[in-house]
């Protein structure tokens, strides 16, 4: 009886997540749906293990949701795994999850690495075991570890785009903070580099401080609150993700400067959209996490059925400000 209830619950969740997936990005899903039907027979019943970065950040939960949507569409068995050590995940736990996937003889592994360097040995084990790898979101470093496809937004481009939007809004002059994500994470390195390159194009804009807040909201609030002491007249804060943008917004609010300081994030989380509509955050972008997960599994299915996947699949992003935020809110 208990098992039945659990099974029923799971079915409900699956159905709901499919419905949610359809309503989110219906145009993209249908276009890939055509490709899906051809593959359905070849990949049905295969098991794809999807290893996320963590099990708490809304972003990565959305990636997982995308994976499950695609899995349901292609009839493959999706097993979502993630480190349980909180936001930002842990490389050791991911390496263990990879080993489990090898032991359970998964047909393919879709992975969002916590640490682009640290994950290399684990990926090499997958290569040795002959299990194909699809890399999502954060790129695996170097050329030693092989993967069939890399599905992501161009993080450099996203950083560049967001910082440029801030610089434009600042009218090309003023002071800016750059708040980085977890040190060593490729997403943070690339976004920061993109941002700094964009800021470099404006000679009258100076980076007053550049610090990491480990992609964490509470951490960002403290860091920005401290930085505001040093540079109270800062004009804009570039953050490598939305969580940190929300933390920054609270720090700015605590200093009674809401609206005076422009803040940008990346991801397009629901909370951030509310903050943008209220005017406490200037901009974010939709990095389409559901799509990232969806196309990760899509490429995996493609490889399993055709023996080859697209080496890279770029997910498009859209700049979200107060002007168009309503289009993205439920």
């Amino acid at each position: 009886m208990k098992k039945r209830i659990v099974a029923l619950g799971m079915v409900c969740i699956a159905v709901l997540s499919i419905l949610a997936g359809c309503s989110n990005g219906s145009d993209k899903n249908t276009s890939s749906g055509d490709a899906g039907t051809a593959e359905t027979k070849a990949v049905a019943g295969k098991e794809i293990v999807c290893i996320m970065k963590d099990n708490v950040t809304p972003f990565h939960l959305s990636v997982a949701e995308g994976c499950e949507n695609a899995g349901a569409e292609y009839g493959v068995k999706i097993t979502v795994q993630a480190p349980v050590s909180g936001a930002g995940g842990s490389n050791e736990e991911q390496a263990q999850l990879v080993e489990q996937a090898i032991a359970s003889q998964a047909d393919c592994v879709v992975i969002v690495p916590v640490d682009s360097e640290g994950i290399v040995p684990a990926i090499k084990k997958l290569n040795e075991a002959g299990i194909p790898v699809v890399n999502v979101n954060t790129k695996i470093a170097g050329t030693e570890a092989k993967y069939e496809s890399f599905v992501a937004i161009e993080n450099y481009q996203v950083g560049y785009q967001m910082a440029k939007a801030l610089c434009e809004a600042m009218e090309g002059k003023g002071k800016m903070f750059v708040i980085e994500g977890t040190t060593g994470a490729q997403t943070s390195i690339d976004r920061t580099k993109g941002a700094l390159d964009a800021i470099g194009e404006y000679p009258d804009i100076v980076v007053a401080a550049q610090q990491s807040a480990t992609y964490n909201r509470a951490e960002a609030m403290n860091v920005v609150q401290n930085l505001l002491q040093q540079t109270p007249d800062v004009d804009a804060i570039f953050c490598c993700n939305d969580e940190m943008a929300l933390g920054s917004a609270e720090a700015v609010n605590a200093a009674n400067k809401t609206g005076e300081i422009l803040i940008s994030g990346v991801d397009g989380n629901a909370d951030t959209l509310v903050a943008i509509s209220e005017g406490s955050i200037y901009a974010t972008c939709n990095s389409n996490p559901v799509g990232q997960g969806y196309y990760g599994v899509y490429e995996a299915a493609k490889y399993l059925s055709e023996g080859a996947a697209d080496p890279t699949y770029a997910i498009e992003t859209i700049l979200i400000t107060a002007e168009n935020v309503s289009e993205f809110m439920d």
């Binding site: 708490v56 950040t57 909180g86 936001a87 964490n216 909201r217 509470a218 951490e219 609030m221 969580e243 929300l246 933390g247 609270e250 609010n253 605590a254 909370d271």
Partner: peptide, 11 residues
Amino acid sequence: RLNAADPNISG
């Protein structure tokens, strides 16, 4: 303080 219930506050 944070204006959010965030599972990462344990930090």
